[in-house]
Design a protein around this nucleic acid. Sequence first.
DNA 1: AGCCGATCTGGGAGCGCTCCCAGGTGTGGC
DNA 2: GCCACACCTGGGAGCGCTCCCAGATCGGCT
Lengths: 343, 343
Amino acid sequence: MGPRAGDEERPTLEDVAAFAGVSRSTASRALNDDAYVSAAAREKVLAAARDLGYSPNQAARSLVTRRTGAVAVVLSEPESRLLDDPYRAAVMRAGYRELADVGRQMVLIFSDIREDLSRTVRFLEGGHVDGALVFAPHRADPLPKALRLLRIPIVFGGQAAGIRRGVHVVDFDNEGGARLAVEHLVAAGRRRIATIAGPQDQSAPIDRLAGWRKTLLNAGLDPADLAEEADFTLSGGANAMSALLARHPDVDAVFVASDMMAVGALRTLDAAGRRIPDDVAVVSFDDNATLAPAMDPPLTSVHQDPREQVHAMVEILMQLLDDHDLKPRQHVLPVSLAVRASS
Amino acid sequence: MGPRAGDEERPTLEDVAAFAGVSRSTASRALNDDAYVSAAAREKVLAAARDLGYSPNQAARSLVTRRTGAVAVVLSEPESRLLDDPYRAAVMRAGYRELADVGRQMVLIFSDIREDLSRTVRFLEGGHVDGALVFAPHRADPLPKALRLLRIPIVFGGQAAGIRRGVHVVDFDNEGGARLAVEHLVAAGRRRIATIAGPQDQSAPIDRLAGWRKTLLNAGLDPADLAEEADFTLSGGANAMSALLARHPDVDAVFVASDMMAVGALRTLDAAGRRIPDDVAVVSFDDNATLAPAMDPPLTSVHQDPREQVHAMVEILMQLLDDHDLKPRQHVLPVSLAVRASS
DNA sequence: AGCCGATCTGGGAGCGCTCCCAGGTGTGGC
DNA sequence: GCCACACCTGGGAGCGCTCCCAGATCGGCT
């Protein structure tokens, strides 16, 4: 392996110190603004660093501090799913921002739940990062269990497959959100309230479906045969809506487990000549900022903010970095209902 | 700073060597499968590493090798744009895969072109990564120029704003793609061929517009007043199509500079009662795998494969890592036309 | 005057690894 | 039988940084 490009010119801390006429220790203190450095020395060192174009060698630093300054964000999904989920995209952005705000670098890991397990584990184990934020929504995903054995702090976004306790989790109140949505529809006088549920191999959609069912029962309504499962895609939502209409032409409301599926449902309803919300009211879940308000009509949607979730996850991870024995908790974030014209 | 979690247990190479009854050097050689290690020694070392759960300290390794094993993928965009471009999402996936295939880790950097310049430069400068793949399509973006001064190898995806030579670039043949699209429409007998162009602050859409214009002129057709600029979004495409229809109700074909805008255009055309392709033929650009074939009707689209682009970029970067003085080149990847029912 | 604590500085050690070099052992050719 | 050359091994140095510790200087207090 050859030396890295332009390396011979790269100044070290020693060079900066010599240039500033102080010792390596003083230079280090000045650069990391430790206490006990005279103003004069600090000034000289900073000037020297600027003049020489110095930037510290991260490897050397983290060799001694045992911190890399990097945090992994792991998205564990089947290969095909990774691209088209807008919530995941929002999570990536939020992760980048929130970590930057605490001076950490995001290292994004895409992990196919079938193929990449060992590679992902090896990376996380390898000391590249100080900790990880893990999104592994699928029940069949072996990753969460594998990660339990690891030495690095981990916070899960949403339930960790197959693990009920002993891990840090930040989840939204999926069941509560569904309740909000359905109660809103009931209050508006709807009586045939169907649902398009998400994939039942993930806990979030499971909880949303449960919330829908319980709320209907509480209101004295019958959920029987009014649920259709789809795969969180636009076309999936459209097809599910067709199936519901075929079975129950008299449906007067539908709770859809994601914005993207709601877009599909809207199309189907439109094609079937149903007016929204007059004939059928629609409430969805996610309240994606670029999707829900942009629809025709704008979607009433259960609001969950990816940034808020990631913010909480980062906060917990930072605590975990200080105190590894922090007691694991399940944090449940509240959701709200953004009421718009579709209901 | 306290030690990292569970650190006291973390075995070092020395521990592995002792456990295996060999020296540190031999253990290192065995683990990195260097030449000149006896089969017996290798076996013992690997077994010891397995038993102790050893994983090498990356910081120590890269301190001496001057390689981090990580490569940055930089997406430089205005904040608002980062989420909704499916091509960018595909680039992320491709970057992860292609880098993994050469044993490198992707570090994703979102860089707002107005806010994050210095942070991004500092990170790239800081020795966290061995090189960078940079996507900075906006002409006004100061990032590419700032990166020229850096010490790390960089390959640009698409033209680097404000730089014509001296950098490594892998771009698609945007103008050629537009020519393919328009020639296809001309050959089908279309005569009033409009275009919905992308934002003219980026070179790719500029080239696509130029290709459309030149090809029309070559065919003896008049491009005057038949171009409308939009912003690569669905609603932008829909509005641009309305404007075109208002000005030229007799338009019989439209070349749209992206799939996403074409989806919008399709909606407008549908709402205006135009049949596709009978009344108006539509050809778009990108050939996004989840978008173009899924439309009604399926879109004819200029095919460009993000994976191919990223693959080429990674290949060049690997060469650059070996030979820093590699002569900079502009690589232009060919595109093809995927003909479907919309034209 | 003397002492103590706060402030500041420099040198040394060491983080865990890779690489170089010196040396040891075996095998084949003259 | 001896040299040459492969093969294999261990020890030492050193990557660039942070942290600890010993020492120097300087008030301010008894």
